[in-house]
Amino acid sequence: MAVEIGSLTLQSRLILGSGGASSHKVVLDALHASGAEVVTVALRRFRPGSNSSSLYQELADAGAIVLPNTAGAHTANEARTLAELGREALQTNRVKLEVVIDDRTLLPDPIELVEAAKDFVRAGFEVFAYTNDDPALARILADAGVAAVMPLGSPIGSGMGILNPANIALIVELLDLPVILDAGIGTASDAALAMELGVDGVLVASAITRATDPTKMARAISLAVQAGRDAWEAGRIARRPLAVPSSPLEGLPDFNLVG
């Protein structure tokens, strides 16, 4: 079933981050294997003499929706510059807003993030906001008018999975807005857990692009996203400390019968 995230109507709940791939081909193969429709890209200086094939063109030719990010920004002003460049380069108002506190943790800077989110919304961007796993901050971003919040499971590229599942579930419960789990996914089960917590989608980059076999991992994570979504929609049973028998307790035979 299709999911609406901002102005996007998607069949796949997996968004592919292109970072960490050893070549454009790895990204394209992962795109095909996963069925993802959206791919994020960063904006950087063109280096004369470098590979002049256009990643954007290759992704567009493959039918992907290319989402520029503001990775590399440490302030709201830097993020705005990257967002304007992304809007101009890719001819889209959509932007994945990232403003990090430092390069060691790559954790979102909440103060700069909120300032940038307000500024971007005023400037007509459709904002997909990469944020901490903090329900309060997610609410502030929602009130600022972003299209989706993208809480991290754990630091970018760490592969540590979802460190605070309760907060992710709370963000889903509190916000009347699409929630995309972004960052920290290490393997398929992490993506399934994210979906079981009720998020609308998952963004995965390193877990796929840096896997030993990126194409196979792309497929595995795509299946996990689908399985996790089905499980969320199906409604899991409650956790309880004691057993609930799955076989009837009545109608047991006389245990003194001799065989």
Binding site: G17, A42, N69, A71, A205
Partner: peptide, 10 residues
């Protein structure tokens, strides 16, 4: 002149 292009990222 700055020439900025889409690269692999996040």
């Amino acid at each position: 002149v700055e020439v900025i292009t889409a690269m692999q990222g996040g």
